[in-house]
């Protein structure tokens, strides 16, 4: 369901080749099991949004945009803003995304992203501190809408989307808001949105997602869709800079031994350090590039 395995037409020989290569730590594109494809980040690609980014990992390409709107906080959390993640899988990327196939994948990806990036109920481990989105407690807050779009799909969509959201959030400027004083407590306070001053998010604690795909008895990072079609199961682990695990989701039906799962989580933690550094330098480079242009 999660993969587009049905669309990858592979012969028995090709399947054997992929599996054999992974077993010998030399994958079809020459990578090792723990090597990522080159990652490329571009920020500020959508002028209409408060923040946006395009991330390419090999042939996989995704866009994330962040839109902020004023809204009312949830009555159960009056001191917090709201954040929602939606993913859209356009059929332009892959014919199988048309109709239900795309919807299923999209909802599964959004669910996995929410689980990996938004933290627990009390807000522990969240990538973004929702309390920072509050303007007037119980009255006005920012609603942050994060939209992901899959433009081209060649495996490892979740990691790419996670990286794109991180880049888009560090690119996001939330307008500064002045609250008119003297409004009575019952009415909605008047707010004045500044169009010059912007607040930046602190994304240093934002986790990255590392998906480990198990093919045969080995697991690999950054699987292409050909490799994903041969997977028995995959574990997506989100890790923040402190090395804390912020979310885990498993996909693929096959069962895994508990010790293998703990091994994979530990491995993901090691990999994530390099990935965070690589991503941060890419984001910084993209931001610098954007400033030069403007």
């Amino acid at each position: 369901m999660f993969t587009v395995s049905a669309m990858v037409g592979l012969s028995l020989g090709e399947k054997q080749f992929i599996k054999g290569g992974i077993a010998q730590d030399l994958r079809t594109d020459g990578r090792k099991r723990s090597t990522y494809r080159p990652i490329f980040v571009e920020t500020g690609v959508i002028p209409q949004a408060n923040g946006s980014a395009r991330v390419m990992i090999g042939a996989t390409e995704v866009i994330a945009s962040v839109k902020a709107e004023l809204g009312r906080p949830n009555p159960s959390h009056p001191d917090k803003g709201k954040l929602s993640i939606f993913v859209d899988c356009s059929p332009t990327a892959e014919p199988s995304f048309e109709g239900r196939g795309g919807d299923d994948l999209a909802s599964e990806l959004s669910l996995a992203l929410e689980r990996c990036l938004l933290g627990g109920k009390s807000g522990a481990g969240a990538g973004i501190d929702l309390a920072s989105l509050s303007i007037v407690e119980g009255k006005v807050c920012w609603d942050l809408y994060i939209d992901g779009l899959v433009i081209s799909s060649d495996g490892n969509l979740l990691d790419a989307l996670g990286a794109a959201i991180k880049a888009a959030l560090s690119n996001t400027g939330i307008p500064k808001v002045q609250v008119a004083s003297g409004a009575s407590p019952d009415e909605l306070p008047e707010v004045d949105i500044s169009d010059e001053e912007f607040l930046q998010f602190d994304t240093s604690r934002f986790p990255v997602i590392v998906t480990l795909t198990k093919v045969g008895s080995h697991y690999i990072v950054d699987a292409t869709s050909e490799e994903e079609s041969q997977m028995s199961s995959a574990l997506s682990v989100s890790v923040n800079r402190e090395g804390q695990i912020c979310g885990v989701t498993k996909r693929g039906g096959a069962g895994l031994d508990p010790s293998v799962i703990l091994d994979m989580i530990y491995f993901a933690k090691t990999i994530s350090e390099q990935l965070i550094n690589k991503l941060d330098s890419q984001i910084a480079a993209a931001e610098a590039c954007e400033e030069d242009d403007s």
């Binding site: 627990g120 481990g125 069962g255 895994l256």
Partner: peptide, 21 residues
């Protein structure tokens, strides 16, 4: 002794994950 599904949210250290498992 096989895990078919596993979900985790919040902030966890690896020893804590071991304990929970």
């Amino acid at each position: 002794d096989e895990i078919t599904q596993l979900t985790l949210t919040g902030e966890w250290s690896t020893p804590k994950i071991n304990e929970a498992t």
